[in-house]
Amino acid sequence: MTTFGSAENGSGASGTPWRVGVLFSRKGHMREPETEHFRGTALAIEEINLAGGVLGRPIEPVCYDPESSPELYRRSAERLLTEDGISTIFGCCTSSCRKAILATVERRNALLWYPSLYEGFEYSPNVIYTGAAPNQNSLQLARHLLSRFGPRFYLVGSDYIYPRESNRIMRDLVSREGGEVVAEAYVPEQPHEDQIRRVVEDIRRRAPSVVFSTVVGQGAHLLYRIFREAGLDPRTMPIASLTMAEGEIRAIGPELCVGHITSAPYFSTVDTPANRRFVAAYRARFGRDAAVTMYAEAAYFQIHLFADALARAKSLDTQRLVDAALGTEYDAPQGRIRIDPDNNHTYLLPRIGMVNEHGDFDVVWEAKAPVKPDPYLVDHIYDHA
């Protein structure tokens, strides 16, 4: 267990702390995006505590490292909610880990704040969803790829719920627009190099217009590296993703990723006053070369949303906190966001970015206004521009 930002290490708050749980991995195959979730969480808690806390009381995090394992996530959540007496958790990146703790969170009437994009088709009164739903990334990406690169899509993913559901959505969107899915392939969550090489060889053979990848973690690193080793050119056949962010681009090597595409509400290059402050604060805390990503940003702003709701609820009681949180707005680094009272998801600003030679994203498209979350894709109209 680790802690940060508590009254004992120099915060401006005093009094009985508000104790919350933090569950993000710093080990395992998802360590890079989850470490970014963890850092965004830490930065926000430290900022709030240094400013006097919430109602004069500091936020005290109780943190465990589930090591990218759904089983460790489940056990850690159980420990937080029973032994540690916690009722509010900030955590999870992959859907398999969220699903692993959801029953425990609901059974104990706790509250999970979930900052990662996901495949949608879920609602829980015990979860606040602050990452993108499919109508805030997949729909915009499908339209962009079809118009800019062509109709032939190759879908490849890691073999678990998020990739399979996201690929199902993408397949539906592509077919509705007159495109064609030429193949759909899956690899284990922690694939061997040879498994990725076989997929890349199949991509070369089928020559699609674009590759839509829902491969995550270290498997995604292998895919991007082997794709370039095979001589495939992102400028004419890009890999498009919902998950590939600046931190992983740097780990792979920016020179191998120039031209690839990600659809997300946030990139470090977003030009808002709030983002300039966020990037400066993040790099002052974690190093001037620290990658600032969608994973850090959503984890950061959801702590500020929580603090605002807590100040009004004056209690960590789950129902009172949820009631206070719904409808809450905040000037996040990406822009003005709001928790939708209809479904506990968040209004976000869709963007599409292309990797440049520095390992950052040039924003090539963005919505004109935040998009209402539609996790069940009731409305398939996606021209919100």
Rank of each mutant, 00 (worst) to 15 (best):
271 D>C: 01
381 I>R: 14
107 R>M: 12
84 D>W: 11
60 E>R: 07
340 D>I: 07
185 A>E: 15
378 V>G: 01
230 A>Q: 10
136 Q>E: 11
323 D>E: 15
36 E>F: 00
151 P>E: 12
96 S>C: 09
263 S>G: 11
37 H>R: 05
310 L>E: 11
106 E>Y: 06
211 V>E: 00
110 A>F: 05
173 L>I: 13
60 E>K: 08
235 R>P: 00
277 R>Y: 01
52 G>F: 02
252 I>R: 05
159 D>N: 15
21 G>M: 07
55 L>H: 04
258 V>M: 00
92 C>S: 13
315 S>I: 06
173 L>S: 05
149 F>D: 04
62 V>C: 00
267 F>I: 04
84 D>A: 11
142 A>W: 01
12 G>Y: 07
233 D>I: 04
375 P>G: 06
109 N>E: 14
72 L>R: 15
325 A>D: 00
374 D>I: 01
316 L>N: 04
317 D>C: 08
177 E>L: 12
136 Q>G: 04
27 K>W: 04
9 N>T: 14
191 P>Y: 10
116 S>F: 02
349 L>R: 15
48 I>R: 03
78 E>C: 03
287 G>Y: 08
181 V>E: 01
371 V>H: 00
127 V>Y: 07
46 E>T: 02
135 N>M: 03
109 N>M: 05
280 A>Y: 01
